[in-house]
């Protein structure tokens, strides 16, 4: 069960609101397995229907994780009008090359967090995307 601090949930929701009408995206870093920070990444697609994380920011965050001993706890993005549930595109893009769902997913240990602005308050849910394109919800435990 993913334990996520309320401050991290609030940061993701706030980011989702601020990036309207487009989807927002980012990463949650953990230290010793404990999630502690939601980091905004630019959505290069700048679209209400798609996100594509800015690769240079991804690269810098990869270096930060290596240098600081942090790990990639979650990848988050918003759905501005649809459910907080991985879309077929989200599932396809969780594999490399894209759509090769019989490969191991790109980030087997990392949660995919969806923030839906369809609801007020917004819905925030976490998932693992498994080999074969199987979606498993992992109920979030919000911690202080």
């Amino acid at each position: 069960m993913p334990r996520i601090p309320s401050s991290v949930i609030e940061a993701m929701v706030s980011h989702a609101h601020q990036d309207l009408p487009n989807e927002a995206c980012g990463m949650v870093h953990a230290r010793d397995g404990v999630a502690f920070e939601a980091i905004r990444v630019k959505n290069d697609a700048a679209s209400p229907f798609r996100y594509e994380m800015n690769p240079l920011q991804m690269l810098k965050l990869d270096r930060r994780r290596e240098d600081e001993g942090e790990s990639l706890f979650a990848i988050y993005h918003s759905h501005v009008a649809s459910e907080a549930y991985p879309s077929p595109t989200d599932v396809r893009m969780a594999f490399w090359p894209p759509g090769e769902i019989d490969n191991e997913p790109m980030f087997p240990e990392t949660y995919y967090v969806l923030v839906s602005l369809k609801y007020d308050p917004p819905a925030v849910r976490a998932f693992h995307i498994r080999m074969g394109g199987v979606i498993e919800e992992e109920p979030i435990e919000v911690v202080d």
Binding site: E23, A45, Y51, P55, M58, L59, H79, T89, A94
Partner: peptide, 11 residues
Amino acid sequence: VSILPALAGGA
């Protein structure tokens, strides 16, 4: 040289 698969998706 850094090589990164894209992280992307959509509604």
